[in-house]
Design a protein around this nucleic acid. Structure first.
Length: 275
DNA sequence: AAGAGATCCAACCGCTTCCAC
DNA sequence: GGTGGAAGCGGTTGGATCTCT
């Protein structure tokens, strides 16, 4: 009889596109066990993939908070601006584009933006536009200082894009929430959202004391009761315009041991409820 | 309608960095 | 400080789809 380890060694790692069944297995495993050692994930999840492939699939496709679809003009401008300063640092760029993966940005650059830049250079049109020269709508979108610096951490939230959670939070659950924002719904008793929070926060103690609710149908609010930090999942393109710079401050996700690209905002409760 | 070329994008590969021992 | 394994990252590939002729 062969040992289990030798059998595992003989397992050929599957390559190529992921099937819906494989996606479900990986998603179920991470929801139930959280993120851990990737090399162990395929074995324990019953997948014939290597850990690296599982990690990539999770990061680029399955993890919550990813938004899919075409890049907005605003996102395009961010990429162009960041590319001027960072070069091909796709993962760093993705930190400024919540819901976008480094791979997605990289593909978009190679398939579209790169040519656009090259064409503009050929026609002597300065590109990308300098941040201070960009259209005035951005300058008037709730940034009193009117800083022209390219997406520093202090102004990176002026206009956040839409973030979709379709895979993790059903619309029915959205509608259960009080749209006035006056009352938050306890995280207990809402299974899929529990899973979402567990995954997104890496299963850390940060989960404790969290509650969430809708704020005027615009945002899903995550509230940390102990230190007054709020993690807003922006559902409306221009929501940030409702906040003044004094209401919003940016925290590094690393401060909370999180690996994803969300931004954390420290907002006054009264301000939130006045939306 | 068909086929050739272009485009897009998910996934792989290999190198680097990080970290525990 | 050295080593090995895991994770992170950027470049590249290959197949599916689209567009043009």
């Amino acid at each position: 009889m062969r040992s289990k380890s030798s059998e595992n060694a003989k397992l050929k790692h599957k390559k190529g596109l992921w099937s819906p069944d494989e996606d479900q297995k990986l998603r179920d495993y991470i929801v139930n066990h959280g993120l851990g050692c990737w090399s162990a994930v395929p074995i324990q999840a019953g997948l014939q993939r290597n850990g690296k492939s599982c990690r990539l699939r999770w990061i680029n496709y399955l993890r919550p908070g990813l938004k899919r679809g075409i890049f907005t003009r605003h996102e395009e401008e961010i990429i162009l601006t960041l590319h001027c300063t960072l070069g091909n640092k796709w993962s760093q760029m993705s930190r400024y584009l919540p819901g976008r993966t480094d791979n997605e940005i990289k593909n978009y650059w190679h398939s579209y933006l790169k040519k656009k830049v090259e064409n503009s250079e050929n026609t002597k049109i300065p590109f990308p536009l300098n941040y201070a020269q960009r259209d005035s709508s951005l300058e008037s979108s709730g940034n009193p200082g009117g800083s022209s610096a390219p997406y520093s951490e202090s102004d990176g939230c002026r206009k956040l894009p839409k973030i979709m959670f379709a895979d993790w939070l059903s619309l029915d659950q959205f509608h259960e929430f009080d749209a006035s924002g006056e009352s938050s719904v306890s995280r207990n008793g809402c299974r899929s959202s529990d899973s979402q929070e567990t995954v997104m926060n890496g299963g850390k103690e940060l989960n404790e004391g969290l509650s969430y609710g809708l704020v005027d149908d615009l945002a899903l609010k995550y509230e940390h009761q102990e230190n007054g930090l709020y993690d807003l999942i922006i559902c409306e393109d221009d929501l940030c315009e409702n906040f003044s710079s004094s209401d919003v401050s940016l925290y590094s996700c690393d401060d909370f041991g999180q690996s994803d690209t969300r931004f954390l905002y420290n907002l006054g409760e009264a301000r939130l409820r006045s939306l």
